[in-house]
Design a protein around this nucleic acid. Structure first.
Length: 498
RNA sequence: GGUCGGGUGGCCGAGUGGUUAGGCUCAGCUCUGCAAAAGCUGCUACAGCGGUUCGAACCCGCUCUCGACCUCCA
């Protein structure tokens, strides 16, 4: 169906993508834990896999994109203690976990919309699938790989490793893991330190709790993804994605659970995006260096020099390959903003440009060049989604588009078919696949247009009288308000609004 | 400590054994009443040391250095 090759973390190499069911793709991406506000670091996987999703669709696949919401866990909010539950407070004073979950889910969706991420086909919640998780745990116990202790259930990793290649995805060796000396919660209940929880007994102060065959508790940290992905995509689906930091233990555990419950690993291709760093360090909760989406868009953060438009952030993310780290800096974001502006203006220009319709190009070399830059975009996407190179190609084309307008390039230098290809390439890649949008809303409201045309006319008169003081005053004042007038070569005046 | 991945021009960032990544910045030029925008040109790098090779930033080894994972984390 295509020549798409993706880097499969499981085998550590690029592989040709072939879907299990022809024409269809099952894509599962680990979603956010909605116990707090989403930050810039979260933007990366969701933008990355949004492009994966978009590109697969572009290739003609029908994609079922499942991205979960993790809303089960030990939730607290600053100033509101989890112990509320047993403190004898009135109901409305207590922390209601679903209140938090709802708030942060909404905020997450808000961010996704601004980033122009397509909504997944299904967005299942962990709390909505407790039954499925319990039944999967029962299955694992029955097959002899799960054991109960004090109302908690653990997965027997050592036993699993004796029969299956545990650690392959994350490059871990069971023997080394067994030697690790870390003191973790509930360690004494486990047979081996490497075992992970499938179900946890809920202490009295724990807010979220469900009845289970093992008493009141809550699901373990990895089982939700296994239960939900198999429910909606089948026990074996095409692509499983997420951040690199989830490779271990999360994805490794998913593989183990699913292998026991279903007899095979859940996904064929594992894709992992790299981290966003700030001053070279990963942006993450534990490092206390996150920039929340709300702060990013408003500029309200000590290290932010300005607010950044969501599209600028999206573009910034896509200028780097998804498997490379991406370092945050004001300078980098500002460079991206300028770059995106320029590229988008070329695109807008391209949409408005008319081609004389000649079937034969006057400049064969240029014509070939244009065709080449257009066509190689597909190759770059097929090569493990190299969005950075796609963008580079589009930038190669921008001067040609601008040149046609500026007169440096004759419109008939390229033929009609190539011009059409140029137009469709920009539309397809910029909008459909990279999912980019204009930085400003449709600026040309009718009234604004009329007001400006009055000013432009006055200025034109002044210029004709060589009254440059007046003409410059008009232009400079407007510039102050963020409206930039441009005297075009053909004598017309255009404007852009920041 | 173990495992893995990086170190590219002023900055951000692609990449391949041999020809220009791209963006931003900067300088010059063209256009312009002047600007802005645009176009053109220039700045031409691959941590260090060895090795393989006709040829390496790209392959191998060593050194230095940064980071990720090993614990909730996108």
């Amino acid at each position: 169906m295509s020549d798409l090759h993706i880097y499969n973390s499981f085998n550590r190499q690029k592989e040709k993508f072939e879907s299990i069911t022809p024409g269809h793709v099952g894509l599962y991406v680990c979603g956010p834990t909605v116990s707090g506000e989403s930050h810039l670091g979260h933007a990366r996987p969701y933008v990355t896999f949004d492009v994966v999703n978009r590109y697969l669709q572009h290739l003609g696949y029908k994609v079922r994109y499942v991205r979960n919401i993790t809303d089960a866990g030990h939730f607290e909010e600053e100033g509101r203690e989890a112990e509320d539950k047993i403190a004898g407070k009135a109901l409305l004073e207590k922390l209601e976990p679903m209140e938090l979950v709802h708030k942060y889910t909404e905020l997450f969706h808000w961010g996704m919309r601004l980033f122009n991420c397509q909504s997944p086909s299904i967005e299942p919640t962990a709390t909505g699938h407790v039954i499925e998780q319990i039944s999967m745990i029962e299955d694992i116990i029955q097959k002899g790989y799960g054991y109960e202790k004090n109302g908690s259930v653990y997965f027997d990793v050592k036993k699993y490793a004796e029969h299956y290649p545990y650690g392959k995805l994350s490059g871990r060796k069971i023997d080394e893991l067994l030697e690790t000396t870390r003191d973790l919660d509930g360690q004494d209940e486990k047979i081996n330190k490497v075992d992970f929880a499938l179900w946890k007994n809920a202490p009295p102060e724990h807010l979220m709790r469900w009845k289970s065959p093992w008493g009141e508790g809550f699901p373990g940290w990895h089982i939700e993804c296994s239960a939900m992905s198999s429910k909606y995509l089948g026990t074996e689906f095409d692509i499983h994605g997420g951040g690199m930091d989830l490779q271990f233990p999360h994805h490794e555990s998913e593989i183990a659970q699913s292998t026991i419950a279903h007899g095979h690993a859940p996904a064929r291709y594992w894709m992992h995006n790299n981290m966003i760093t700030i001053n070279g360090k990963k942006m993450g909760k534990s490092y206390n260096n996150v920039i929340k989406m709300t702060e990013l868009f408003s500029g309200n953060h000590p290290i932010l020099e300005q607010a950044y438009h969501p599209m600028v952030v999206r573009f910034y993310i896509l200028q780097t390959h998804y498997r490379s780290t991406l370092d945050f800096s004001n300078e980098a974001l500002q460079a991206s903003e300028k770059a995106l502006r320029r590229l988008w203006e070329a695109y807008e220009l391209l949409k408005k440009t008319n081609h004389p319709g000649n079937a034969v190009a006057k400049d064969a070399a240029l014509n070939d060049q244009v065709k080449n830059f257009c066509n190689e975009c597909a190759d770059f996407m097929n090569d493990d989604l190299n969005t950075a190179k796609v963008i580079a190609s589009l930038f190669e084309l921008a001067p040609i588009i601008n040149g046609i307008k500026g007169g440096q390039v004759k419109a008939d230098a390229i033929d009609a078919a190539t011009f059409a290809l140029l137009q469709s390439t920009f539309k397809t890649y910029l909008e459909d696949i990279l999912g980019l949008q204009a930085l400003q809303a449709e600026q040309n409201s009718n009234k604004m247009d009329k007001v400006l045309s009055v000013l432009i006319d006055i200025r034109k008169d002044a210029k004709q009288r060589k009254d440059f003081a007046t003409s410059d005053q008009i232009r400079n004042k407007l510039t102050e308000f963020g409206i930039q007038l441009k005297d075009e070569k053909d004598g017309t005046v255009s404007y852009t609004i920041e």
